[in-house]
């Protein structure tokens, strides 16, 4: 099980939680399982083809997953997957 950190804009889609546990041996599997359990998350971060939208940054243990192996990045017990969309607010 990995811990997925949920950004403020997606918390409603997971019942208000700030973190959610999800199984999977790669970052892609973890997010697929998360989106199966919480389809409203998938609607926001996945394209109709099931790919991650380009505007969604994923960090695995505080490292940019684009610089690791993206969805193939191996994860396991105790790892943290952070979903990080840009925020615009300032006022």
């Amino acid at each position: 099980m990995s811990t997925v950190k949920i950004p403020p804009v997606l918390r409603q889609a997971v019942g208000g939680e700030r973190t959610v546990e999800a199984p999977g041996s790669t970052m892609g599997e973890v997010l697929t399982n998360l989106c199966q359990a919480h389809p409203a998350v998938g609607a926001q971060i996945l394209t109709p083809d099931g790919e991650l939208h380009k505007y969604v940054n994923i960090y695995v243990n505080d490292e940019d997953a684009r610089l690791l192996q993206w969805t193939d990045t191996p994860v396991g017990e105790g790892d943290t997957v952070m979903i990080l969309p840009a925020m615009a607010g300032g006022a």
């Binding site: 804009v9 926001q44 939208h53 380009k54 505007y55 969604v56 940054n57 969309p85 840009a86 925020m87 615009a88 607010g89 006022a91």
Partner: peptide, 12 residues
């Protein structure tokens, strides 16, 4: 952030 999220994912 190469691209902005769509407006519904980016509330003010």
């Amino acid at each position: 952030f190469p691209e902005p999220p769509p407006p519904d994912l980016a509330p003010s």
